[in-house]
Design a protein around this nucleic acid. Sequence first.
DNA 1: AGCTACTCCTGGTAGC
DNA 2: TGCTACCAGGAGTAGC
Length: 284
Amino acid sequence: MPELPEVETVARLLRPDLVGARVEGARVSWERTLGGMTKRVFARRVIGTRIVAVWRRAKYLIFDLERDGEPAGCLVGHLRMTGRMYVGPAEAGDERHIRVRLDLDQGRAFQFVDVRKFGRLVYADTAAEAMPGLGPEPLGPEFTAAWFARALRSRRRQLKPLLLDQGFVAGLGNIYVDEALFSAGLHPLRRSDRVPRAKADLLHAAIQGTLAEAIKREGSSFDTFYRTPAGQPGSYQHQFQVYGRTDKPCRRCERPIRRLVVGQRGTHICTRCQPAPRASRISR
DNA sequence: AGCTACTCCTGGTAGC
DNA sequence: TGCTACCAGGAGTAGC
């Protein structure tokens, strides 16, 4: 499922194709993708605009629009689990599950494909109004080790649900949280205010290191869903230490990786490298 | 404040 | 083979 590294990859690869493109048509085959706007209104808002910027915030993709050289709102997209975006020739399109299609100039089309229909492509006047309150970017300047240590202490939550909370830190998802927690040797059920400073620093570095490396490898593809806009799979899945490795030996200590459920999410840990907190010996 | 459960969706798969 | 039941999960929401 696309998380920050995958969305960053999509933004980077879409940018050269989309910036400067003129929107000449809009076809919506699953209206809920628009987040409440009717397809008629959506089409009226976007047709005749030009895309002037493509950027990412957390797991959102934002396309800034202009009409006659004046700002004209933006499109805010979220891939959720199975969304894909790419630009291709207008006539090439027997792809299933196309939810929104924008006809562009020069005979090209932007397609938003999404098997499970959870993804969104929303028109908004400003990006902020289409995104909820988000925490800092984990690769941005606000996300310092000192800030992170303080933020962990100020909450009393289990680490995994806290790191998945986009209002705390924006952009992490199930995969990279599991990987970062393993890398720092922290159990997902550890309470955030009980993490010692040295461990908080390790986790901070693990989050940044994991994300940066995953961006270099254009994200992770382990099923048929995530592909870059160029149609290629990412390659970070080969670096996974714990995610999806249930029963396989820990790469550090050989003990089989265990799968547990934390906050309704599949969670992968090494019970030796990530010792359970004293209060809750959930996993033996 | 922080937790759990439920909802939205479909394709793949386990079980019979 | 063909059927059903169940599972994955990001994020929003409701209820405790």
